[in-house]
Design a protein around this nucleic acid. Structure first.
Lengths: 227, 227
DNA sequence: TAGATTGTTAATCGATTAACAATC
DNA sequence: TAGATTGTTAATCGATTAACAATC
């Protein structure tokens, strides 16, 4: 088999295309052009064609892309065509919220369990999902072939928890804890979703506007040197 | 005043530096070099120096950066030195979870209220935060000088909700709804936090590994053409 | 065939990395 | 002064955009 590097932005956009195509399919739209698809996700049509051409030739010149066909292909590429078992680590605020989030199920994941080190929690349920201890986690991961873990543990525990998960065979980690988790790419793929960074990004604009009393004016982020 | 463009990645890293410096300050570390700071957030030291030099000269050649001083400067740049009022739109699953998330308060935000269009909810409380209607929102935003809104509404409502918020004077939006919100940058700054994209990013790896029975081997994302 | 749109190549842009003079 | 580390410039890398031949 022949592998090639795929830019992360490309995969993120495939995810967006997938969602748009799903909507088009529901509305019964048979064909879409790269221009229309690009407009729908706010990007240049060339990017759409380039992204798709990395994985095959899905379109028909002079015509466009068959919506259902393209949707099916992208679903397959992203693994959206079946349900994936995941395990959540951490039964705190964030972990519980994630467990309650219907988006997981809607997007083809099934939350097998929530792991927590607190012995008082093992055996209970959160939103219908069993809370288990680490011994239970090992068993579950092996038996169910769980490949993905979602981390929502205190910052100081993240690194060791990740290591533990990798040792149990986990190969993809989505880290919601406010710390940049570093793991060799040969061990597992890690995605950090650091909400505090997004908060700061949002605040930067307002803070800057306040400093000079301006409303946003430029089309990109501006800076102001410390006086 | 002289403004200049700031790359978004730079601001995201400033957020990370800020957190590391906070920890160093707590531990009583007086000085840090760009190499150490870079290591802490997993990047090259040159990036650290370049990021910082955009806003001023914070270091001492041959010595490094004074931790407390640098922390204070970055806090000021990001607006972390005071509390910012925010408003959450949408009292559903996601909105409620966000309202319950202690990270907002910890990182210097105060949730003034949750707006919802359901008249049955107005007047109630979620996690101690009042749920209000749109009339209430208008009043609150004006009176409290709220500049930021966090959107957690159904996809089909996002665009109109954003417009409404901008009309009320909101200048920075953090959109958690699974849709790419598009707003002219002259109107407001928008950050999209599309969780489903992260899910797909995580799954892509596992899906690919499954297709050839491999464990992750390369240092970057790989692709496999549709056969 | 004429018009349209893909797949792909070349040109541009921007961010990261490497290197080093300035200087504590 | 000698050693260290910054601030900054030049070189590299990678992604986006523009352009167009291929082709339905």
């Amino acid at each position: 088999m022949k592998f090639f590097k795929v830019p992360e932005p490309t995969i993120m956009r495939l995810s967006l295309y997938s969602r748009i195509l799903e909507q088009l399919e529901e509305r019964g739209v048979p064909i879409i052009s790269s221009v229309e698809l690009g407009d729908a996700v706010g990007i240049n049509s060339g990017v759409v064609r380039k992204d798709l051409s990395m994985f095959g030739e899905f379109g028909v010149r002079g015509v466009g892309y068959n919506v259902r066909e393209l949707r099916d292909n992208i679903r397959k590429l992203l693994g959206q065509d079946r349900s994936w078992p995941v395990i959540i680590v951490g039964a705190g605020h964030l972990g519980s919220s994630l467990a309650a989030y219907p988006g997981f199920t809607q997007r083809g994941f099934s939350i097998e369990a929530i792991v927590d080190s607190d012995p008082a929690l093992a055996g209970t349920e959160i939103q219908g999902h069993p809370v288990i201890d680490w011994a239970g986690a090992e068993k579950l991961i092996k038996e169910q072939g769980v490949r993905m873990a979602i981390l929502a543990v205190p910052p100081d525990a993240v690194q060791s928890v990740a290591q533990r998960m990798i040792d149990l065979g986990i190969e993809a980690i989505l880290n919601f804890s406010p710390i940049i988790l570093k793991v060799p790419a040969t061990k597992a793929q890690v995605q950090n979703v650091d909400l505090t960074v997004f908060f700061d990004l949002m605040r930067f604009t307002s803070n800057l506007n306040e400093q000079d009393g301006l409303r946003p004016q430029s089309s990109s982020l501006r800076g102001l040197a410390v006086r």
